[in-house]
Design a protein around this nucleic acid. Structure first.
Lengths: 225, 225
DNA sequence: ACTACCACACTACCATACAAGTATGGTAAT
DNA sequence: ATTACCATACTTGTATGGTAGTGTGGTAGT
């Protein structure tokens, strides 16, 4: 076998999987909604097999609940899980930012500064969708510089559960200006190698704009467990 | 739909999935070994469907690499991933043990002490398999007392990659006596609410008996990436 | 001896058919 | 009116056949 070539992404299963995942995370498919393999297979114009395999994957990630012979439901948001997702992210990100202050490649530092510049532009243009992507890229770059991409992947997995609550307060203020200012301070702390300062900043940073869970649950009772 | 009843576990897919996972983690299926849906389906006496769905799940966990139209391979051990798994566990466990020192239910504390007693027995009987289970239960109980079971689940996921290296040094010493002594000190730190001491203990605890990766890779070159 | 080619035996992927469990609404017996 | 029953239309679970891509070994041609 010749394993030099990487596996392709041109499988219908992958397409269905990503489409479904996007729809769930964007709340196009609402928490608690019942879906079926058949329904999705006709909607996508494929057979049940790739749909079913996508269901299995999504169930493993906690985005679907499969009840054998009864039905499949988009998982309701588990607030305890959301809390812990935040807990996990905060502590891992703290640990990594401290590493970054000890040693950080110049190239990654340049990427951070370029990212900051792009953020400034997006702020002026009020392009919040791209701003969200840049925020993600900013944090990822820190992990990348510390050679902790697997750790970043773990955060990506658990963040899935945070993202839906984030989406629920879409209309509300996301404090992008505050986040932007903090990003700048974080870069400075890395550059000046001040781990304690950096950790404190990250801590505050990740606590900006946390949704009031009680309020959300009151507003969308059926979306929660 | 009546969702009070929980989903059952009596699916052949689940059986196949867990069997395969056990075989991979126990190194019955060696890293780098090529397997196929057909092969496993005849070996288990089931059709290809449940096998295939298990493959998808295991691939998602990084235990299998599926190359479309070419074959499926038990993933080789990624030492970078192993390092990060340890990194993640250490920092999450540090954070939780600090929480435990702030407040910890009496019931969980009793469970820890009972667990310690069982460990003592196993040490005397040299029942190392059960000792391993008790060690797992010990740490889980700490997370349980802090209401961080989802966090524990995350650790369980990443630990999968650690376990295979642990298995490779099966014959060597696991320092159970040292681990047991540390467990006792950790319980004391929780009881006396000394977070700094507890964190230091956990840090040392998780560094006991770390395999020499360079040595392992030299001894089993084909098992690693 | 060497190379280009090709038949063949694999692989995972997908579509489809069937099996088995479950919810529901109508109907007949009480 | 109430209850027990059952046909029916769902659901997910499993089995199987065909498809297309891939590696391999043999063979014919040079």
């Amino acid at each position: 076998m010749d394993f030099f070539k990487k596996p392709l992404i041109n499988s219908t299963r992958d397409a269905v999987y990503h489409t479904l995942k996007d729809q769930i995370l964007s709340l196009t498919l609402l928490p608690g909604a019942t879906i079926s393999e058949k329904e999705m297979s006709v909607s996508f114009g494929v057979s049940r097999t790739p749909v079913r395999e996508s269901f299995v994957q999504l169930a493993q990630e906690g985005l679907l609940d499969i009840y054998p012979q009864r039905g499949t439901v988009v998982s309701r948001i588990d607030l305890e899980l959301v809390d812990e997702a935040r807990f996990i992210r905060e502590h891992l990100e703290s640990a990594v930012i401290r590493l970054a202050c000890l040693s950080f490649p110049d190239e990654s530092l340049r990427l951070l500064q370029m990212n900051l510049a792009s953020q400034k532009v997006c702020m002026d243009e009020q392009d919040y969708k791209r701003m969200f992507e840049l925020d993600e890229a900013f944090h990822r770059t820190i992990f990348e510089g510390c050679k902790k991409m697997n750790t970043w992947a773990v955060i990506g997995q658990i963040n899935v559960h945070l993202n839906r609550t984030r989406m629920l307060r879409l209309a509300t203020d996301h404090h992008w200006d505050e986040l932007y200012a903090q990003h700048g301070q974080i870069v400075d702390a890395i550059k000046e190698q001040k781990p304690d300062t950096a950790e404190q900043l990250i801590h505050a940073h990740l606590h900006v704009g946390i949704a009031d869970q009680a309020l959300l649950k009151e507003k969308f009772p059926t979306y929660f467990k």
